[in-house]
Amino acid sequence: METPSQRRATRSGAQASSTPLSPTRITRLQEKEDLQELNDRLAVYIDRVRSLETENAGLRLRITESEEVVSREVSGIKAAYEAELGDARKTLDSVAKERARLQLELSKVREEFKELKARNTKKEGDLIAAQARLKDLEALLNSKEAALSTALSEKRTLEGELHDLRGQVAKLEAALGEAKKQLQDEMLRRVDAENRLQTMKEELDFQKNIYSEELRETKRRHETRLVEIDNGKQREFESRLADALQELRAQHEDQVEQYKKELEKTYSAKLDNARQSAERNSNLVGAAHEELQQSRIRIDSLSAQLSQLQKQLAAKEAKLRDLEDSLARERDTSRRLLAEKEREMAEMRARMQQQLDEYQELLDIKLALDMEIHAYRKLLEGEEERLRLSPSPTSQRSRGRASSHSSQTQGGGSVTKKRKLESTESRSSFSQHARTSGRVAVEEVDEEGKFVRLRNKSNEDQSMGNWQIKRQNGDDPLLTYRFPPKFTLKAGQVVTIWAAGAGATHSPPTDL
């Protein structure tokens, strides 16, 4: 069977082979063929449309019947899901209200924590001031004790010197008594010597008188005998007598002179000795008097100093007792304040721990409710997609609110971060928990396990030699990294520990 286009092609070929045509004729024939082709295509399209309309009418009838069946089946399910969705919305509203209440309680707890922290800071300042005052008082007490020990040692030294001076005074008084006794003995010996000298002088005078009498008696006897002796021998006898008398007189005078000289010499020697002894004793007595006077003056001065030191010692002891009493009071006050502060800190920690436990429990309940609501929403969306139902505006708002919801909680030295990733086909969620104590904190952990970043959050360098970082993902083997023995993380510095297959460059001390 030939198509209209094939017939047109045969006809035009025959005409062209029979007679030659002009260009205008050819153009018109071409346009006519195009119109015929378009008409044929339109006829085919109309036939196809008619057949499709016939099929569409049958399909519409089948769809109508199916919609009636589906509407009867879905009406009950939709009512049940609407009821469950209403319950879920009520639960979500109650959870939102509970969350708002918990946020209010958390803000209240934070305000109480700030207030307690301020009070604690003030108490710590008072405690530091009390400890500083206690240290000052202890230093003052130590200085006073040192001064007291010095004063006591000086007192003992002065008492020793006073005892020595008293012994010296006793010795000097004994020496003075001995000197006085020697002086009295010398004076007695001097008086005795003077008496003996006077006696010797009297004896000498008496001997002179006796010698004169004997001489006169001898002259008288000789004169008497001379009268009786011969005149011839008188001159010879007289001359001999005169010579004998002269010789006797000379001898007697020599003896008297020698005895006189010896007596005067002895007397002068004894007198000089007595005078020297008297002068020496008088000098000793003067020196003893002077030394005794000086000793008395020094004793008086030392007694005055001793009394002054005793007064100072009594004042120091009184002040020391006052300082000890004040120190005891300060210690009791400090202990009482410290006990009160520790009790308040313990109560505050217990209260904060209780509130944190309650908040953690409520947060766990909220997370469980969020997971249940998310599961209900997934089931509802799956059924709506299976039944090709359009979601209600309320469910769209709930989905938008659930997809944009995120929370971040800080308290008790722990930080909890939650992130949620969404897509049109599926939804997944993960959470990161970080707890830090000390100078070094974990700043970031790569989700794909490529690196771990640490930061020194203090103002001092931290030695991290032979420290270890351990990481384990589920049931995978435990991964451990040990820092070099001499590694030190500077204040405020960040160090990144890269995985072996991350392709990073080893560049200490920032990249390991």
Rank of each mutant, 00 (worst) to 15 (best):
Y211F: 09
E236A: 06
E253C: 06
R225Y: 12
K265N: 13
E257K: 01
K261E: 13
R225A: 03
Y211G: 07
K180Q: 01
Q184K: 08
R189K: 00
R216S: 13
K219A: 10
L188P: 01
E217L: 09
R220G: 12
T224V: 01
E213K: 11
A179F: 14
R235A: 06
Q182E: 11
L226M: 12
K219P: 04
Q255I: 06
K270H: 10
R196S: 02
E262K: 02
T224R: 06
K181L: 13
D185P: 00
L226Q: 10
A269C: 11
E186K: 02
R240T: 02
K260Q: 13
G232R: 04
E202T: 06
V256S: 01
L271V: 12
Q184E: 08
D205H: 05
D192H: 14
R216C: 05
Q207H: 05
L271G: 03
G232E: 03
M187A: 04
E236W: 00
M200N: 09
R225G: 08
D185A: 02
T218W: 09
E236K: 00
R221Y: 10
Y267F: 08
D205V: 04
N209L: 11
E186M: 08
I229A: 10
D243W: 13
K261D: 13
D254T: 13
R240G: 04
R221K: 12
A179H: 13
E257V: 05
E257N: 09
R235M: 15
L241Y: 09
R190Q: 07
E223C: 06
M200Y: 09
I210S: 03
R196W: 01
D272W: 00
L248Q: 02
K201R: 15
E194C: 11
K260R: 02
A179R: 08
L241H: 03
A193L: 07
E223M: 11
F237K: 04
D243N: 06
Q234A: 09
R216L: 10
N195M: 04
D254Q: 10
E178L: 15
R196I: 01
T199D: 02
E238I: 10
R190K: 13
F237R: 03
E253V: 14
A250L: 01
E253S: 03
L241F: 10
S212H: 13
A242P: 04
E214H: 01
Y267P: 05
K180Y: 03
V227S: 12
N231T: 10
F237W: 11
S268L: 05
R220D: 10
E194M: 06
T218Y: 14
L188V: 03
Q234D: 12
T266M: 07
Q246S: 07
H222G: 14
E203V: 02
L215Y: 01
Y211A: 15
Q251I: 13
Q184N: 03
N209R: 03
R221N: 09
Q234F: 07
E257P: 02
A193G: 00
S268F: 07
Q258Y: 07
Q182C: 15
S212E: 14
K180M: 06
N231L: 11
F206S: 03
Y267K: 04
E213H: 06
S239K: 05
K201Y: 05
L248Y: 10
E264I: 10
A250Y: 14
N273P: 04
L197K: 15
E213I: 07
E217D: 13
D254K: 09
G232W: 11
E186A: 02
M187C: 10
H222S: 07
L248D: 07
Q246D: 10
L271T: 01
K270T: 03
E217C: 00
E213Q: 10
F237E: 05
F206V: 02
D272M: 06
Q234V: 13
A179W: 14
K270V: 07
E194G: 03
A250H: 04
A244S: 11
M187E: 09
E262A: 01
S239W: 13
K260F: 11
Q255G: 14
E202N: 04
D243I: 11
K201A: 05
A250R: 12
K260L: 00
A242G: 13
D254W: 13
L215S: 04
E236S: 08
T199W: 02
K270Y: 00
L226A: 08
L215N: 00
N273E: 14
V256R: 09
D185V: 15
E253T: 02
K233M: 08
N273I: 04
I229F: 14
Q184G: 09
E228A: 09
K233F: 05
K260N: 04
R235G: 04
E253G: 11
L241A: 01
M200H: 13
L215I: 15
E214D: 11
Q182K: 13
K201T: 15
E178S: 00
L183D: 03
A242Q: 09
L204V: 13
E186I: 14
K181R: 14
R190C: 14
E257T: 12
D254L: 14
K265S: 12
D185K: 12
E178C: 14
E186T: 06
A179V: 15
D192A: 02
I229G: 13
E262M: 10
R235L: 13
E194L: 11
K208H: 05
N195S: 03
T224A: 12
K233H: 14
G232L: 04
N209T: 04
I210N: 04
K270G: 02
L204M: 15
E262D: 09
E194V: 08
K180C: 08
L204W: 10
Q207K: 12
T218Q: 08
I210G: 01
R235V: 01
F237V: 11
Q251G: 09
Q182P: 04
E223N: 05
M200D: 02
S239A: 00
L197S: 06
E214P: 11
N195H: 06
S212Y: 09
Q198H: 01
N209E: 01
L245S: 06
D243R: 11
L204G: 02
E236D: 14
A244T: 06
K260M: 07
Q198R: 03
F237T: 05
L245T: 04
D205L: 05
Q184V: 14
E264S: 06
K261Q: 15
Y211Q: 03
A269E: 08
E213N: 10
E262I: 00
Y267W: 07
D192F: 08
M187V: 13
H252D: 01
V227R: 14
N273C: 01
Q198Y: 08
E202V: 03
T218I: 14
S212K: 04
M187R: 07
A179T: 14
Y211I: 10
L245P: 03
Q207G: 03
R190T: 10
K181M: 08
A179I: 14
L248S: 07
K208W: 03
N209C: 11
R221G: 03
N195C: 01
H222E: 15
K270E: 04
E238D: 14
H252L: 01
R216Q: 13
K208S: 05
V256N: 05
L183C: 13
R240M: 05
T218G: 12
K233R: 04
V227E: 10
S268A: 15
Y211C: 13
Q207F: 00
N209W: 04
Q246H: 15
R235H: 15
L271A: 04
D243Q: 15
E223G: 08
E257M: 12
E236F: 08
N231P: 10
E228C: 06
V191H: 10
F206T: 01
D254C: 15
R225H: 15
H222I: 06
R225K: 05
L263S: 09
Q182A: 04
E213W: 05
E262N: 11
E194D: 04
E253W: 03
E236Q: 08
E238L: 12
K260G: 04
